[in-house]
């Protein structure tokens, strides 16, 4: 019995870095193309295990447009040895990819509703494929609100693209920073401030919300959403835990009875509500 790449889920496929660019001081985006086999089809919210030769492997969400075939996009923050190696690749480099893994933002199932995205920091990256889907199919949805917060104006991800979304007449885009800098004329404060304001003008019962960011930011955002009448079964969040295999074998990403890699990373909030407010689970 021989093990081929098709059957061994631990074996990566090789991808070429078609193009890479710096987003922020410690964040880069790369566009990848498959060197063997077919290009990867994925759903918004799913992730890949990316391998840097000689360094290791790490779980990174897919941040490109699922409708664009043959183009795989990842945005990576340099927070350690592996992510640092991946964030500093150059055009033409090769990396290994396993995936896609995990659950997806069920945005395509929420047609007719007012879609609210709440993103904190790099949490915008895993939400972006879902945002693209709503932007591309805007007439199928009652409304689109994106509330995005980062630590400082320097940390605003995809800033130019977000400005482009804001320039459309069929979107409501709110951007806020925790700490302003000279020259910043936008909002200052945590995401719940513009979120509460945006929700105030809407009927919570018509809202489906997708939230991604640090856990504390997600907790407070969910509180705001619920206070505005958004039903808990219309709120989805994306969780992050250590992952070594992404296929449910290594045990690292357990969250209660769930494996974040297989049952998540995207969860409907009522499914994780009992544990999400508990420390050290």
């Amino acid at each position: 019995m021989s093990v081929s790449a098709a059957t061994d889920p631990m074996l990566p496929r090789r991808y070429r870095v078609r193009k890479t660019w710096k987003e922020l001081a410690d964040v880069s985006t790369m566009e990848l193309e498959a060197l063997e086999g077919q290009s990867m089809a994925f759903q918004p919210g799913q992730f890949n295990m990316l391998y840097a030769f000689g360094v290791g492997e790490v779980a990174i969400s897919i941040s490109g447009d699922p409708a664009e075939e043959g183009k795989l996009v990842h945005t990576i923050r340099d927070v350690g040895a592996v992510s640092g190696a991946l964030a500093s690749v150059s055009d033409g480099d090769m990396i290994g990819v396993r995936g896609p893994f995990g659950s997806a933002w069920p945005v395509a199932e929420q047609t007719g509703r007012h879609i609210v995205f709440v993103a904190g920091g790099l949490g915008l990256a895993p939400l972006r494929p879902a945002i693209y889907h709503v932007l591309n199919n805007r007439d199928q949805y009652a409304g689109l609100t994106v509330v995005y917060g980062s630590r400082s104006p320097h940390d605003l991800l995809y800033a130019e693209e977000v400005r482009g979304w804001k320039s459309r007449f069929d979107t409501e885009i709110e951007v806020t920073v925790d700490h302003a800098e000279p020259g910043w004329t936008g909002q200052v404060g945590v995401v719940t401030v513009p979120l509460d304001r945006a929700l105030a003008g809407n009927n919570g019962a018509e809202v489906s919300a997708f939230v991604c960011g640090p856990e504390i930011m997600m907790r407070f955002s969910v509180m705001s959403l619920k206070a505005a009448g958004v039903s808990e079964d219309k709120i989805w969040i994306s969780m992050e835990r250590n992952m070594k295999c992404a296929i449910g074998f290594c045990g690292h990403c357990q969250f209660g009875g769930d494996f974040i890699c297989r049952d998540g990373p995207v969860f409907r909030h009522d499914h994780v509500a009992k544990l999400i407010n508990r420390k050290e689970v």
Partner: peptide
């Protein structure tokens, strides 16, 4: 117990 790490 089945938990594992993967090392480079």
């Amino acid at each position: 117990c089945f938990c594992s790490d993967v090392e480079e």
